[in-house]
C-alpha cells in the first residue's frame, strides 16, 4: 500500500502514467536486440570508462534528449519549436568562431554561445507571444535564419577545433559514463525543479490548456511563452555544443539537420500531447532513447539505409497508436466483444 502511494507520487512528479507505453515500446525493442543482435548488452570497462552499445545509445541519444526537454515545455504551451536544429548549428558556430578567430578561452566562448543562442530562441518566443505569429511559422523563420547565421559565422566552412573543454563536453567521460549523460541528468533535474517546485510548471500547463482562461486568472501567458522558447533555445545550444565537441568540428551546414523532428517525435511518443497542457519530461527522455535505440538497432541488424525508414515508421506508428485514447477504447471494446465468444 505504501509502495503504491510512493509510486503514485513518483509518477505524478514525472507526469502521469502514460509513459508506460513508451517504456513498453522501448522494452520490446531491447528484447529484439537481445535476441537478434549479438553482444548488444555486453559492457566492458575500458580506459577508465564503460564501453558498449548501451553506452553509445545513451551518448548518441543525448542530443535529442537535451532538445526534447526544451521541446516538451514549448509543446506543453500548445506551441512547437522547429528552430532547434538550426540553433544547434548557431551555438556550434559561435563557439567555434569565439575559440578560433575570437581567440577566447572555452570559459568565455561557451557561455557566449549559450547566451546568444538563448536570445535567438527567445526571439521566436517574442514573435509568438507578442506579435501573435503562429508558432510553426515563427520558429520556421528562426530555423531558416539560424542556419544562415551559422553559415555566415563559419564562412560556410567546417571549422576544426582542438579545444579540450569542448572535446570533453562532447566526448569525454565522467563517473565511467559519457559526460553527456551527466549533462542530460543535470538538465532534467533543473527542468523538474523549475516546473514541479515552482509555479512555472503549472503556468505552462494552464497556458497550454486554455490560454484565455489563464490570462483572466492572472497567469502571465506572454512571459511564460517567451520563457519556454528561450529555454528551448538554451537546450538547443547545449545540444549544439555537444554535437560540435563530439566531432571536434563545427559543421554549420549539416549539424542538427532534421533533429527538430526527432525532438518533436520524442516528446509525442513520451506522452505529451501536441495540443498542449500536461507534459511528461521523463517520457520525452524515454522517447528520445527509443529513437536512438531504433536507429542503432537498424545499424546492427544491417538494414539497408534505403529501407531503414520503413521499420522506423512502423514502430513510431505503433507507439503512437498504443497511446491514442481512441485506439485504446477500440481495443477495449474489441476485447469485450471477443471475451464472451471464448467463454461460450
Amino acid at each position: 500500500m505504501k509502495t503504491d502511494s510512493a509510486w503514485k507520487a513518483i509518477s505524478t512528479w514525472f507526469g502521469g502514467g502514460s509513459i508506460i507505453w513508451t517504456l513498453l515500446g522501448l522494452a520490446l525493442l531491447l528484447l529484439v536486440d537481445a535476441v537478434w543482435v549479438k553482444d548488444f548488452f555486453t559492457l566492458e570497462w575500458r580506459d577508465g570508462h564503460l564501453y558498449g552499445t548501451p553506452v553509445d545509445i545513451l551518448h548518441q541519444g543525448s542530443k535529442v534528449m537535451l532538445l526534447a526537454l526544451g521541446m516538451t515545455l514549448v509543446i506543453a504551451t500548445g506551441g512547437v519549436d522547429l528552430s532547434v536544429g538550426s540553433l544547434m548549428a548557431v551555438a556550434g558556430a559561435i563557439a567555434a568562431w569565439a575559440l578560433t578567430a575570437g581567440g577566447m578561452s572555452a570559459a568565455s566562448a561557451l557561455p557566449l554561445a549559450l547566451l546568444v543562442t538563448t536570445l535567438i530562441g527567445s526571439l521566436s518566443g517574442l514573435l509568438v507571444a507578442v506579435l501573435g505569429v503562429q508558432p510553426i511559422v515563427a520558429t520556421l523563420v528562426v530555423m531558416v535564419a539560424g542556419r544562415g547565421i551559422a553559415m555566415l559565422v563559419t564562412g560556410g566552412q567546417i571549422l576544426t577545433l582542438q579545444d579540450p573543454t569542448l572535446r570533453f563536453i562532447g566526448g569525454g567521460y565522467f563517473l565511467g559514463l559519457p559526460f553527456t549523460v551527466t549533462l542530460v541528468v543535470a538538465l532534467l533535474a533543473l527542468t523538474l525543479f523549475l516546473t514541479r517546485r515552482t509555479a512555472f510548471g503549472l503556468f505552462i500547463e494552464a497556458t497550454g490548456d486554455n490560454e484565455t482562461a489563464s490570462r483572466f486568472c492572472g497567469v502571465p501567458v506572454r512571459l511564460v511563452k517567451v520563457l519556454v522558447y528561450a529555454f528551448s533555445g538554451f537546450c538547443a545550444a547545449l545540444a549544439g555544443i555537444v554535437a560540435t565537441g563530439n566531432i571536434h568540428a563545427a559543421d554549420s551546414a549539416r549539424v542538427g539537420e532534421m533533429m527538430e523532428l526527432d525532438a518533436i517525435f520524442a516528446v509525442v511518443v513520451g506522452g505529451t500531447a501536441l495540443t498542449g497542457g500536461r507534459f511528461h519530461l521523463l517520457g520525452s527522455l524515454l522517447g528520445a532513447l527509443l529513437i536512438q535505440t531504433l536507429t542503432t538497432t537498424m545499424y546492427n541488424l544491417g538494414v539497408p539505409p534505403t529501407v531503414a525508414p520503413v521499420p522506423k515508421a512502423v514502430v513510431i506508428v505503433l507507439v503512437c497508436l498504443l497511446q491514442s485514447p481512441v485506439f485504446q477504447a477500440r481495443l477495449r471494446t474489441w476485447k469485450k466483444a471477443k471475451t464472451p465468444e471464448v467463454t461460450a
Partner: peptide
C-alpha cells in the same frame, strides 16, 4: 561527419 562517427560506433561493435 557526425553520422559517419555514429554509424561507425555501432558497426565497429
Amino acid at each position: 561527419r557526425s553520422q559517419g562517427k555514429e554509424v561507425m560506433e555501432a558497426l565497429v561493435k
